[in-house]
Computed example of a mutant assay.
Amino acid sequence: MSKSRMPLVFGAALALLQALLIVAFAWAPTHTAPRDLPIGVAGPAPAAAQLTEKLRAASPGAFEIKTYADEAAATEAIEDREVYGAIVVTAQGPRLLVASASGPAVSQLLTEAAGRLSGAAPATPVTDVVAASPDDPRGGGFAAMILPLVMSGIAASALLAFQLSGTRARLTALGVFAVGAGLASTLVSVTWLGLLPSSAFWQVAAVVALVSFAVPSVIGGLGAAFGQAGFGAAAAVVFLIGNPFSAAAAAPELLPEPWGAIGQFLPPGAAATLMRSAAYFDWAGAGRPLAVLAAFAVVGAGLVVFAGRRRPAAPERPADDDVLVPAA
């Protein structure tokens, strides 16, 4: 490529990248809607069945409805992260149970759905079974903290892949970064900003440390093993797919299919789900996101070891008869 054309090519590539970023980060929020969102209906069987039919008729395909005998059973299901909320049928009318800690956007959606069912009747009473942090009632701070965790991991992976060499040095740097990030980020997000409850300090620190090991180990390991191509592909997947479809500000069931589900198998989505489970629900529903992040961490460590064992090919030595002997 001639030097005169390089500015044109780079300028066009950057403009295309900008457009791609807008699509990646703006498309999902503009197509948010419930899709088989798990909710509960509790109360006497005939009344619960009637309410279930009304919900399905009013919003086809929006909800995956599970029935419970009473309010206590529905509350337990919410606390176990089986459902995002529940409508309880009582003699005084329906009551709504939500968990804003699962995502304020979901709680608002369920409140609006219950309001449409009540029609002109008095507003449906709402009980927040598991409330979000009072310092972050709308969940904006929680959603915003996931991106820095991933971006710092990508930055660390670049240093890991291209500035350090050797398995021991890379694994040591990963360990120090993970522990330091877990403590420092939790001090900021929990103690100072109050984005998560202070009682969950060590749970949050453990999740942050796991994310801070998993992300740079995989991306940096691929970079160390396969060069810039491996690094760029992994970073692009995590940043362009993982972040927009992490559901950190909502729920996977509110995102376009199948991207909401795919996002849960990438570090940002798994991190957001695991963070909520650890901080608010006593690790309920933590199995899958924990397995995803653990798998990334194990694979990443394996890549680092693999890259450390690769040795550049030694330069070929010329044959004895090819050696030039200077003339006397």
Rank of each mutant, 00 (worst) to 15 (best):
G115H: 07
G300M: 07
E76Y: 05
A45C: 00
A121K: 10
A314C: 10
L109R: 12
L171M: 11
L110V: 02
A113Y: 09
L255I: 03
R95L: 10
R81L: 09
P256S: 11
S100F: 00
M1P: 08
E53V: 13
P94S: 10
L293K: 06
S107L: 02
A74L: 03
S199L: 06
L171H: 05
K66W: 10
P104Y: 12
D135P: 00
T30V: 12
S100N: 01
I87Q: 08
L193Y: 02
T52G: 15
L55G: 02
Q92S: 14
S157L: 02
Q228T: 14
R317V: 15
G139V: 03
R288M: 15
A173R: 10
A249P: 08
T32W: 10
E79Q: 15
Y68T: 05
R116E: 14
L117I: 12
G220M: 06
G182D: 08
A15M: 05
V204M: 14
A248V: 06
V218W: 04
S4N: 13
A248W: 03
V299S: 06
A173M: 13
L187C: 11
T127V: 15
F245H: 13
G227R: 03
W259S: 07
G220L: 04
R311W: 08
G285E: 00
A313Q: 14
A26Y: 06
F265H: 12
A313D: 14
A234W: 00
L222Y: 10
T127Y: 10
T273R: 15
A131N: 04
D136N: 05
V237S: 07
P60S: 01
G166M: 10
A158M: 14
R35W: 11
P7N: 09
E71R: 11
F306A: 12
V323T: 11
A33D: 11
F306T: 11
P46A: 03
R35A: 13
S118R: 15
A105C: 05
L293D: 04
A181P: 02
S133I: 10
P104F: 12
A132D: 13
A101V: 03
S118A: 15
P46F: 01
A24C: 09
A249Y: 08
A123E: 13
L293Y: 03
S212I: 01
A279E: 02
L96P: 00
G302K: 01
M1K: 09
A271T: 12
A101N: 00
A120H: 13
W283E: 09
T186N: 12
G141W: 01
G103A: 05
P122C: 06
G260C: 02
P46E: 02
T127K: 14
G220Y: 04
A99L: 01
I146E: 08
S152A: 14
A28R: 10
A99Y: 03
G43L: 04
G287V: 11
G11R: 06
Q163E: 13
S157A: 08
G263P: 00
T167S: 14
A295I: 11
T167R: 14
P134V: 02
V218Y: 03
F296E: 07
L183V: 15
P134R: 01
V211G: 01
P60A: 04
V88H: 08
F226T: 11
P34M: 02
G182F: 07
A58G: 14
V41D: 05
A206Q: 08
A132W: 07
P258D: 03
A48H: 07
V238Q: 09
L96T: 04
E257L: 14
A327C: 07
K54W: 09
V130L: 01
F63V: 00
A250P: 00
R81G: 07
V305T: 12
A144R: 12
